[in-house]
Design a protein around this nucleic acid. Sequence first.
DNA 1: GATGAATGAGAATTCATTCAT
DNA 2: GATGAATGAATTCTCATTCAT
Lengths: 195, 195, 195, 195
Amino acid sequence: MTSSKKPDKYYAILEGALKVFAENGYHKSQVSRIAKEAGVADGTIYLYFKKKEDILTSLFQEKLGELVVKFNEGIHEQMTAKESLRRVCEIHYSELENNVHLAYVTQIELRQSDLGLRKEIGQALKRYIAFIENILERGKQDGSFHPDTDVKLVRLLIFGAMDEVVTSWLISGRKYSLTEQVGKTINFFLKGIEA
Amino acid sequence: MTSSKKPDKYYAILEGALKVFAENGYHKSQVSRIAKEAGVADGTIYLYFKKKEDILTSLFQEKLGELVVKFNEGIHEQMTAKESLRRVCEIHYSELENNVHLAYVTQIELRQSDLGLRKEIGQALKRYIAFIENILERGKQDGSFHPDTDVKLVRLLIFGAMDEVVTSWLISGRKYSLTEQVGKTINFFLKGIEA
Amino acid sequence: MTSSKKPDKYYAILEGALKVFAENGYHKSQVSRIAKEAGVADGTIYLYFKKKEDILTSLFQEKLGELVVKFNEGIHEQMTAKESLRRVCEIHYSELENNVHLAYVTQIELRQSDLGLRKEIGQALKRYIAFIENILERGKQDGSFHPDTDVKLVRLLIFGAMDEVVTSWLISGRKYSLTEQVGKTINFFLKGIEA
Amino acid sequence: MTSSKKPDKYYAILEGALKVFAENGYHKSQVSRIAKEAGVADGTIYLYFKKKEDILTSLFQEKLGELVVKFNEGIHEQMTAKESLRRVCEIHYSELENNVHLAYVTQIELRQSDLGLRKEIGQALKRYIAFIENILERGKQDGSFHPDTDVKLVRLLIFGAMDEVVTSWLISGRKYSLTEQVGKTINFFLKGIEA
DNA sequence: GATGAATGAGAATTCATTCAT
DNA sequence: GATGAATGAATTCTCATTCAT
């Protein structure tokens, strides 16, 4: 399923980087540390990536690509918009809960310093974003969501909300179950807090 | 109002740092650059801050402190919970819209790599967080919010949602008005998207 | 004429190196760049040369060897010493004028940093040097040159003088004809500047 | 006499560099080695020079500047052109004979790889060159040199000739006296080799 | 308190060379 | 012989921090 044309070492390096970045953060991760983790020589990294930063962006592209694949597999057009949204939240929470390294990197590094890098990563998020917008649009059409829902804004609100929940869970030291938050999260999205 | 006992240079350095961090991000900002911006010698910085990181955390503490002051000034117990929530969102959006440097730093750098730093910054956010939780609690008591609202979770959802809206606005290049998003944002929080 | 027993690739590599060295200088020329220019794999180079430095020294040996062949072809014992000297200068200037890559490499790289390398290259120059000394000696014998001419010193003076003219012509961007300088050069050698 | 406004460390670094470059050649000289030789920290070098290359070019500028000062001190307008030329050669040979490090660096490194660097260094030579041209011009005026002497070409021939003598003396291991070559060198310049 | 010159640890990246195929 | 992917030693330069003045 994954773009499997790349050589093994490419992926080995990305996996090494995922681990090292998660443990230390991008800036405190040395390339040589990643190389060791990947079981290759330092120089080998530069056969596959132009510069250190490229490792990070490639990592996001690959991993977010995999996430979109999961969404595609788990959500079908036959589902109602509400049900689809719940699945999105379920997959979002469970994937990150089951892949803590990825969670660290996306939550912490995705928010990394330079805006330039951030914009590039934003590109990788686009398909995810389109996915949510798609569901919202679908809900508006079939009447299950308010007709005056601002799709773009609500997509941000939903994404940001889930995002913060994951980050908070991480910072807390993952003391509770993330997937157990799905119900209340979706409830809030659907019903709001008004009594 | 703010802990105004600190000497002028302390604030001059923080203001310099705010500007420099906003322009380059924390990691790409040199201490000497901040010193120049603040009009002091490099070494002087170390009379007021133990290390570079301290500048960042102090900056958050000061700035978030100022934000809480604004909340305190703009929100009163007599207001309904709903109205209070709207004011929180208004202040949050307008303060950041009017202080772009601060917006950059909070949105981008608040998400700093190392978790250690992040936790420390989290402390500075606590009073803000308590503020929102307080409102939610108040709403539950007076019946305007669902009695089964999970205060802690919803506070995260709300905070994360607003946060993402601000970040998106920044990344977009601030092409639209942030404060104009208040209405729809609050509507979503209160009513959800269910028709 | 040339030691023509070497396989084609040997010469292909030398020609590639000549071009690459001329363009970038020895130190800034990568072996892989030479390989590409020669149309062989990086590793192949090491089948013909022990190390990068060997490419440079072999290049000099081959090219200076070719130059000596030209001298042998163009200068005959029947010529007077003066005429022979003029031919040396003619060949020296015209060969380098017609082979700019070679000119760059000899003028610039012949003056390579490490003395060790330089000495080795000096070996390759020996036959050229002997050629000039031979002419000077001949001139002394037949009375056309001062009997107290210090052959070794004058050979250096002549060689250095021509060398500097070529280098200067190169550095100037080859804006004028080098061969047109032959007359005045030889005049100076023969008559000096004294009125 | 030297541009004495630069701080001591600037000169200390240049002296260190002179020694290290002479011993190893530019490319094989590490910045840290120069720093140690100069008695400063590695980083200090970068307070005075932008990059490693700048050390080399500055070195030439300073040293050639000093040489020109010596010329100015040793040669006066009252001297005949011939006498002046002899003094140039004397100073050239004796200065380099007495400053072997400088000799190595000028003879070997002056001829360094990239043409760009070489051109820059050429600038530093300009005053020296002008000096020789000046003498030749003077000789033409007062009739002691041929009226049809091509000043620019002859200047190159003279400079190149002396240069080669020095280089050869260096490569030979300085087995003989350089200054003793002055007489024959000047003789050749003035009278040529024609009997 | 204030300065800013000096420090030196630290890290990304390059590239000559090797060697399994 | 030929390949070119892999290696890893080597080196410049940056910049947070110190400290003598």
